[in-house]
């Protein structure tokens, strides 16, 4: 009896997620992430060019591969609705700069490591899909890296990266909404703080 209920529940969840994702091409989404990681490893990490060129290439790859406008609005949560157009723009730019700076510096840690792709999983959000991958660590078990990919027409963009179950977008959303809630200047304080972090 219980088992039947479970099967029914499972089937409905499966059907629901399958229908929600009818629009996403799983193979293409996976190929897109493969291409991005391959470009990052071959043309940036392993390339024999100066750090400045590497940073430039990284910025370009980052902007092409990620949908920062989409991520930015998720990250601001309910404060997105009340923010002015100028605040939205400033926030997204500051958030973009900070991420580019952080990741271009840490990118070299992936040297000599190759992602192993493990297929895709459906998402409850329309036009989105999860691409699963594993990356070897210096020690211990490999880390689970999941890419949340959004399809618009025939274009793909990464909208979240989940490392060992920790979503970068959710973490940033928790952090920024908590910050805005307690900051006297609200979202303007946040933007200023983020800008200061990229200057150092």
């Amino acid at each position: 009896m219980k088992k039947n209920l479970f099967v029914a529940l499972f089937t409905s969840i499966f059907l629901f997620s399958a229908s929600a994702n009818a629009a996403v091409d799983a193979t293409q989404a996976e190929n897109f992430v493969k291409k991005v990681t391959k470009e990052g490893i071959e043309e940036i990490i392993n390339a024999n060019v100066s750090q400045t060129v590497k940073d430039e290439r990284f910025e370009k790859l980052f902007n092409n591969a990620l949908d920062l406008n989409f991520i930015g609005q998720f990250v601001l949560g309910r404060y997105w609705r009340t923010a002015t157009a100028a605040q939205k723009k400033d926030f997204i730019n500051a958030y973009r700069e900070l991420n580019i700076k952080t990741w271009s510096k840490r990118f070299d840690e992936f040297k000599g490591k190759n992602f192993t792709f493990k297929g895709t999983s459906p998402s409850n959000s329309a036009n989105q899909i999860f691409v699963n991958s594993l990356v070897p660590m210096d020690q211990g078990e490999p880390a689970k890296v999941v890419w949340r990919v959004k399809q618009t027409g025939d274009k793909f963009k990464i909208v979240d990266i989940i490392i060992e179950n920790v979503s970068l977008a959710i973490t940033a959303r928790n952090e920024y909404t908590a910050y805005i809630k307690s900051a006297p200047g609200g979202i303007d304080d946040l933007i200023k703080d983020l800008q200061n972090k990229t200057k150092v």
Partner: peptide
């Protein structure tokens, strides 16, 4: 079994996309 549950948030994309278009 449902391993995506933890990070499968919903953007509420329709409403927010509209705001974004206006912006």
């Amino acid at each position: 079994g449902n391993e995506n549950a933890s990070y499968d948030f919903d953007f509420g994309y329709e409403e927010e996309d509209q705001i974004f278009d206006e912006m």
